[in-house]
């Protein structure tokens, strides 16, 4: 299994997929889950130069998240699985 990191740590130009949440039962996880942050969904950093809130691209749309809260989302870099 490849090393997972949280969404706040991802870097530009690389591809990731959602690996889960630090707490699967939090309201935040529940909310994002329904927005499409389910395991295996490709996610990447949007090429905008604002860092907090951060902007990610997922399922063809752009979503802004607070960096601190994005730490609850776990991701895995695609290709090193």
């Amino acid at each position: 299994m490849a090393s997972t990191k949280n969404l706040a740590e991802i870097s530009k130009g690389k591809s990731y997929e959602v690996a889960g949440f630090t707490s699967e039962t939090s309201d935040y996880a529940e909310k994002l889950y329904k927005m499409g942050f389910v395991k295996g969904t490709p996610v990447e950093l949007a090429p905008v130069k604002i860092s907090d809130p951060m902007v990610v691209q997922i399922r063809g749309s752009r979503i802004a998240l607070r960096k601190k809260e994005a730490q609850e989302i776990l991701v895995r870099e695609v290709g090193d699985a």
């Binding site: 939090s26 309201d27 935040y28 909310k31 994002l32 927005m35 809130p53 902007v55 749309s61 752009r62 979503i63 802004a64 998240l65 607070r66 809260e69």
Partner: peptide, 9 residues
């Protein structure tokens, strides 16, 4: 009541 920020652009 949780307050988190998730904004669709």
């Amino acid at each position: 009541t949780p307050s988190n920020f998730v904004m669709d652009l």
